[in-house]
């Protein structure tokens, strides 16, 4: 049995808007194993992106604990959490969120700027990451010169380059056509199956969710159903 990588224990998250308290997650507990590929599904406002943000260390829970690789991340300060994200998490967004002024290679290099690696070592790792996503020949292209699928693959390379334990993907195919989406999902699946990366993906798309090993459905801040697939 695989080791539990992420453990969420009775986490709640609420926001205060004016005098109104909006509860987004309600005492949610969840364990995610090392090497899992989990699809989080649910209607808009169900709390799946909030849950993803908490797991990725972008936000802190209002209550409960989050443990990743044995380390409590819900108690980390802002600076420590940033450091933890840099070492442990790669992020993939729906709209790629590449810096338009940088080339593909420079975008991929961004997480490595926070390390002490030499310039040549950074270049080597960027080259490897771009090769993994099949874009080694697009290194000098700016995002505006890439197709949507290529831009998303650059974003995946950026998420991979620092060799994080966990990849967090928020609607990674939401802006892509079916064929390109399948290519990107296939790539994510390869990263999970062949490179052992743990992936958590938020998606509305049932076909995208089929690429995952497990699916979790959420509604109104609660997990309502879990399913495993081959």
């Amino acid at each position: 049995m695989a080791e539990t990588l992420i453990a969420l224990d009775r986490i709640s998250k609420h926001y205060v808007r004016g005098k109104e308290k909006i509860e987004v997650l309600h005492e949610l507990s969840l364990g995610i194993e090392q090497g899992d590929f989990l699809a989080l599904m649910g209607p808009s406002g169900s709390g799946k992106t909030t849950l993803l943000n908490l797991i990725g260390g972008l936000d802190q829970p209002s209550a409960g604990t989050i443990t990743v690789s044995g380390q409590r991340i819900d108690t980390l300060s802002g600076g420590r959490l940033a450091q933890w994200r840099a070492r442990n998490v790669g992020f993939v967004f729906q709209f790629y969120n590449l810096l338009p002024v940088l080339t593909a290679a420079q975008n991929v290099e961004l997480p490595l700027l926070l390390t002490n690696l030499s310039k040549s070592e950074r270049a080597r790792r960027v080259q490897i990451a771009l090769t993994v996503v099949g874009l080694e020949d697009r290194a000098k292209h700016k995002p505006s010169e890439l197709s949507g699928g290529q831009a998303q693959r650059v974003a995946i390379a950026r998420a991979l380059v620092a060799d994080p334990t966990l990849l967090v993907c928020d609607e990674p195919t939401g802006d892509l056509d079916r064929k390109t989406a399948d290519e990107v999902l296939g790539l994510l699946q390869t990263l999970n199956r062949e490179h052992g990366k743990t992936l958590i993906m938020v998606t509305h798309d049932p076909r995208a969710a089929e690429y995952a090993r497990h699916q979790l459905h959420m509604d109104k801040g609660r997990l309502i159903e879990a399913g495993a697939q081959a």
Partner: peptide, 9 residues
């Protein structure tokens, strides 16, 4: 995005 990938405040 820079903050997301680990740049501190």
């Amino acid at each position: 995005v820079l903050k997301t990938i680990g740049f501190r405040d």
